[in-house]
Design a protein around this nucleic acid. Structure first.
Length: 464
RNA sequence: GGCGGAGUGGCCGAGUGGUUGAGGCACAGGCCUGCAAAGCCUGAUACACGGGUUCAAUUCCCGUCUCCGCCUCCA
């Protein structure tokens, strides 16, 4: 089976065919950089990171653009609240998001355009919209005329007449459902000049402008959180298609991370920030937790479930380390389990994919127990290959370098631990188990877990 | 009001019209082991409720209940 993806626009599974063979273009709605990222934000980044890795696996040139919304009402409000310049506030949190994505092993996007850097493209798009009669200026604002575009509502399945309309002030709107492309400047707010007066971008406009700028008037996949379907993505599509651009060919949306049944949001006070999480578990363990459920299923956050993921990930890790210790460096396998491939091709079914990965781990462990090193190595290579496609390969330098902050200190630690383990080995050979156990206990007290197996002793830093 | 999602064993989380309910975690027993840990093997009357279709439904259809999301900013 070839790759099939669930397309929100058609509410159906569709076989994926890129516009240009051997490539894939993806636009993901990134963050509005108004605060510290929580695990819900990062889930989105992670889900599309997995998509991107899967698309790139057969050599496709994947172009992934993930924008940064660095100007918006909330950014201005929060910056003011904290007495900071809005641009400093935005960049500070942009960095926090980048750090979080990076910490969790998201490959960097091809580009991450900022809204403030693309006013020219937005003005150009507004010109095109106004020329075609799909937009109008009123009192310094520019609105999209929803009635002018019959397809409006197609993406989200909304009927125009049924849409509750809120969007704040209705100043110059011809129809309350018209949405804002450009906000006229208010005193004291940042603004950029346009033919219709100074102002700042409406939220939706930037994504159409930037996606088109970097991926062309038509591109393969547009993604984001499920909440963005309406109105954000509906509006993006309307803006772009109204001027005749093809825009996104597939729409993908990831589900929420909830807490106590409610979505995470600061106002509810149920946010778990990434730095906080990484104090409790290692990055790949958190990644495992967020990447294993299907991207369209809600994750109801719980400490217990997170701990289960930690154990599950460590099982994979322990197997690979065991094989590496016994047989040397394990290569990254290219032959994957057929079930893994089938699962991933089926709308990125990571639950079954990880299931097959675990089956392979068991197979490898069995081989190891039977002393069949060759089979164990083969299984390990396969496991690495599959794990890597999920960004979860425990042996990847990413997870090993980042955990050892200081190589000098690390080397000293290794030398000391090895020394103690040698001493312990002598004690065990002399059947002086009291001494051997005492040494193990001392290491444990220092945060170092020791496990004996037929090939010798393995030790790991356990921060729990 | 409109649109959409969910309700599966102790827990997380897949999936399917029918004889064998993925995978993980936890627990129990066994093997292995100086011990521990790990590993391997084995273990439970699961599919919200009520109808319907069917030889057969957890899986399809209808209805009910419960929960959640979007329609204002949101990953």
């Amino acid at each position: 089976m070839s790759l099939h993806l669930y397309d929100t626009a058609t509410r159906s599974m569709r076989e994926f065919h890129p516009l240009v063979n051997g490539t894939a273009s993806i636009y993901v709605c990134g963050a509005t950089v108004q605060g510290v990222p929580h695990i819900g934000h990062v889930r989105s980044g992670l889900n599309f990171d997995v998509l991107r890795r899967w698309l790139a696996r057969d050599g496709a040139d994947v172009r992934l653009v993930r924008n940064v919304t660095d100007i918006d009402d909330k950014i201005l409000a929060k910056a003011a609240e904290h007495g900071r310049p809005w641009w400093e506030w935005a960049l500070t949190h942009e960095r926090a998001f980048e750090d979080a994505y990076d910490a969790l092993g998201c490959l960097p996007p091809s580009y991450s355009p900022r809204a403030t850097g693309h006013v020219t493209q937005m003005v150009d798009l507004m010109h095109r919209l106004i020329d075609k009669g799909h937009a109008y200026a009123a009192d310094g604002d520019v609105y999209f005329a929803v009635r002018s575009f019959p397809e409006y509502g197609a993406l989200s399945g909304q009927k125009l007449d049924e849409v509750f309309q809120g969007e704040g002030e209705v100043r110059g709107k011809r129809d309350p459902r018209d949405f804002t492309l450009w906000k006229g400047a208010k005193p004291g707010e940042p603004s950029w000049p346009t033919p219709w007066g100074a102002g700042r971008p409406g939220w939706h406009l930037e994504c159409s402008a930037m996606a088109t700028e970097y991926l062309g008037s038509e591109f393969d996949i547009h993604g984001g959180g499920i909440d963005l379907i309406f109105p954000h993505h509906e509006n993006e599509q309307a803006q772009s298609r109204a001027v005749g651009d093809g825009f996104a060919r597939y729409w993908m949306h990831n589900a929420w991370v909830t807490m106590s049944g409610e979505k995470m949001s600061k106002s509810l006070g149920n946010v778990v920030s990434i730095p906080e999480m990484l104090n409790r578990v290692r990055a790949p363990e958190l990644r495992y937790y967020l990447v294993t459920p299907h991207y369209r299923s809600t994750i109801e956050y719980s400490d217990g479930a997170l701990e289960e993921s930690v154990s599950a990930y460590r099982r994979i890790e322990a197997f690979l380390r065991r094989v590496a210790q016994r047989t040397g460096v394990v290569p990254l396998g290219e032959d994957l389990c057929p079930e893994f491939v089938a699962a991933m091709d089926d709308d990125l079914s990571t639950p079954q994919a990880t299931g097959s990965l675990h089956n392979k781990v068991r197979e490898g462990n069995t081989a190891l127990d039977a002393g069949d090193d060759a089979a164990a190595r083969e299984a390990a290579a396969c496991v690495r290959g599959m794990a890597d496609l999920l960004g979860l390969d425990p042996l990847s330098p990413k997870w090993n370098e980042s955990t050892s902050t200081d190589t000098g200190a690390r080397q000293a630690l290794v030398a000391l631990v090895e020394h103690v383990l040698e001493e312990r080995l002598r004690a065990r050979k002399d059947r002086d188990f009291a001494k051997a156990d005492a040494l193990r206990d001392r290491l444990k007290a220092a945060g170092i877990a020791v496990e004996d197996n037929p090939d010798g002793s393995q030790w790991t830093l356990r921060d729990d």
